[in-house]
Structures are given as C-alpha cells and as structure tokens.
Design a protein around this nucleic acid. Sequence first.
DNA 1: ACAAATTTTTAGATTTGCCTAAAATTTAAT
DNA 2: ATTAAATTTTAGGCAAATCTAAAAATTTGT
Lengths: 226, 226
Amino acid sequence: MHKLYLMTRSEENYIKTIFHLGRKGTQEVATNAIAELMETKPSSVTDMIKKLSEKNLVNYKRYQGVSLTSLGTKTALGIIRKHRLWEVFLVEKLDFSWDEVHEVAEQLEHIKSDKLIDSLDRLLAFPKFDPHGDPIPDKNGGFKERDRDLLSEVPINTVGVCVGVKDSSATFLKFLDKNGIALGNQIRVKEREEFDGSLNIEIDGRNLQISHVIAANLYIKTNDEI
Amino acid sequence: MHKLYLMTRSEENYIKTIFHLGRKGTQEVATNAIAELMETKPSSVTDMIKKLSEKNLVNYKRYQGVSLTSLGTKTALGIIRKHRLWEVFLVEKLDFSWDEVHEVAEQLEHIKSDKLIDSLDRLLAFPKFDPHGDPIPDKNGGFKERDRDLLSEVPINTVGVCVGVKDSSATFLKFLDKNGIALGNQIRVKEREEFDGSLNIEIDGRNLQISHVIAANLYIKTNDEI
DNA sequence: ACAAATTTTTAGATTTGCCTAAAATTTAAT
DNA sequence: ATTAAATTTTAGGCAAATCTAAAAATTTGT
Ligand SMILES: [Mn+2]
Ligand SMILES: [Mn+2]
Ligand SMILES: [Mn+2]
Ligand SMILES: [Mn+2]
C-alpha cells in the first residue's frame, strides 16, 4: 500500500514536522506548535491535519492534538532518510559546508525515486550519520539513535568525542567553525563555572572557554562504554 | 534582476516546453502544440502564457502564438543545464541507465541552488553533453550544438561515431541497448535499401540491419571535418 | 467553581493551476 | 468571397493550500 508516492510536498512537510515535534511521532503534538514551526497559521494546520487523517497518516481527534500513525511514521522516516543522505552527499561530494546543506536538502528530500535514494546511499557507502551527527534511517526505516550526552550535562573530567549538534542553525554552525569546533574532535571537560554554567574544555589539544548555551547544544560520546 | 528564483515548477515547465518547441525559443509556438506536449488543455496554456508575459518571459499577442524573450531563453537554458547535468550525474555516479534518467531529472531540474549545480558541474568534470548526446549549456547559457547528422540522411559509405539520439524515449533507448547500439560506437553505412529506407551498417565491427525509423533517430558525427 | 485566557476549529476568501463549455478569431476550402 | 473548420481565448468553476475573523472548546487562575 504505497500512497506514499502521491503525497504533496506540503503534506510531506507537515508529516516531518509532526515527527520532529512529537518525539518521532509517538507523542501528541499541538496545532499551534506545528503552526509556529512551519510559519503558518493554526487554521491552516487544522485543515491539513484533517486531510492527513483521511489518508491514515495521523491520529486525530479535534482539540486533542495529533500523532503519527505507523504509516505516518514510516513516511516521515523515508523523508528524513532522504534529507540526511542528501546532506551527506552535499558535504562529501560537493564540498558544501555543514551550515549550507540544510536549505538545499529541504528541497531534495521531496524528490521521488527509490532507485535514486538507494543508489545515493551506496555512493556514499551507507553512512549512518548526517553532517550534524543525526542518524540516517536505513531503507526500512531502521534507526539507531547514538548514545550521546549534551556537553553541558556531563561531569567534570569527562572525556569524549564531539558527535553532534542539537541546534543545527547556520548561525550556530558557523560559530563552531569560527572556534574550530567540529564533529570528531576529542573533548575533555576541565572546569565548570558555577556562576554562568560556562565550561573550560580541552578540544583537540587546545583550551577553550565556552558558554553554557554552546555546551547545551553540543553532543559528545563518552569513552566510558561498558 | 533575478526573478528566476521565484518561478514555480509549472512556470518553469512551460518555459522549457516553449524553448523546445520553438527551436530554442526563437520561433513562435502555437498554444495547441504546448498543450499537447504538456498534456494539458489549450485554455490552461493561454492562462499561463498571460502570466509568463506579465513576467516578461515570453512575447505574446493574442492569437499570434508565443516566443521566449531573452530573459525567457536564459531561464530555459538554466533549467536545461540542470536537467542534463543531473542526467549525467545519474548515469556516471549512480549507475542509472540512459533510459531511466529523464523522469528523475524532470524533478531534479527544479531544485534551486546555484552552488549546487555549479558544484555538480565540477564533480562531473564539466561535461559538454548529456547521456543522450544533447549539449549542456554552461553557467552563462553558452551552448554549442554539435555538428552531427541523422544516420538516415548521410550517403553510403559514410563513417562516423554515434553521438546522439533524436528520440530519447525509454522505449527507443532500451531497443538500442538490446541491439548493442550506444553512444561512442563507430558506424559505417554500408547499404541503403531503396524500398523501405532500411540501412545495413557496420557498428563496432558487427553488421546490423536497421529500419529507417531507427536510422532517423540516431545522430552520427562524421569524420570528414575540414 | 467559574471567569478569563488560551488554544483550536469553523466559516468564508484568496491564489494558483487546472478544467469545461462557449465565444472570438484565424485559417482552409469551396 | 463566403462558408466551414480549426485554433485560440474568455467565462465560469473546482481543488489545494493558504489566510483572516469569529466561534467553540479547553486550560488556567483565583
Ligand atoms: Mn537538515
Ligand atoms: Mn542534518
Ligand atoms: Mn531528459
Ligand atoms: Mn537528455
């Protein structure tokens, strides 16, 4: 049953938004939240939700919020897979920087062709994570969230590798570039300033002072796996 | 003046169709011809032509047909450049066959990003022709039509290289595959049957009998350049 | 508990791209 | 030169996706 292939771009964007807002679609999402993230009006969201509900992509009872059905979740994962594979492609093959890829991937994620996306996957050697450290669902929607922690929440002296960003806005990513912070960097948390939560870290040898806001948007994978 | 970037997919498809029907937009194109090629109704075409005329993309006087303005031509060349570069990408990097690329390229040609297309161009080493032998406009719309002849129209004993197809439908392309005819093949016209216009050719060593219809859809570049 | 504030839905418009049916214009045929 | 045929445009409508304004339902605060 592949209705997936006759979805409009707009429908796909709503499904994706509901997925992201509702912890992978499991949680109920508020109409207003969707409207805000999509920069549209709540009344438009209600209209679309009804349509998606007709198509069995979301569970909906008026005034009760919306969540994805299993078909909706599958659809969302397909779009996210495409988005993230294209992001990898742009960085690996076309030398885009990680702050430039999202906008273009927003367009490319709507291209319909299974063969295209599976070939792309192969060309890129089946990457597991996108340039921002987010996991790439496989062909069947399989998804393994990497075990990771926010830099702002690990204890002093934790050592690990920077594996992702929480905020992946161009502004934040460019800031990281400017300060020489990139995925793969070795990080050690040396000191936490109680007053403002800022951190003194050692990153690939250098010392660096970063604010709490920055630390709260950087993921590390610690070495203390058992 | 880059209105180009706020064109809808539908507008782009009309512009492209007018370009193809009107010998690169120079000739006047009939409403019905556009409608037929785009599988839409003449009344819809008239509506769109008015809109494109407003935007200075076409020259239009009612009942007199339509042609591209210089802005329209530039736009068309940009879309065709994208279409053909994506076709090369699909064949060269993703192992698509030449009969599979067109459909996907029809989608990809509407992705908006100068950086994307110029990087793609570089990745592919600035190809001059697409998988069907059609020329790829450069960044500035520069376009050199290759000197070539239809196999059906060259004299007996002409020798050349197969450099393109006129009909690039999947059906025809698959037929060529089945008969081992591909771009780059060395061809010599050995005999022309007066009765039905069929040809006896030598192609990369082998002998092959091809109907007039086939010959009339294959381009060769002869070796008799001065 | 119940009024006030917030959220969500409905009702009614708008825009884009398409349609059908009918009218206007051009082209072809006698 | 008229008439007939074909082409093209207009008029009026429809579906998708959006909006504003108003009504309905839920949540919050005292
Ligand atoms: Mn992204
Ligand atoms: Mn990403
Ligand atoms: Mn093509
Ligand atoms: Mn082509």
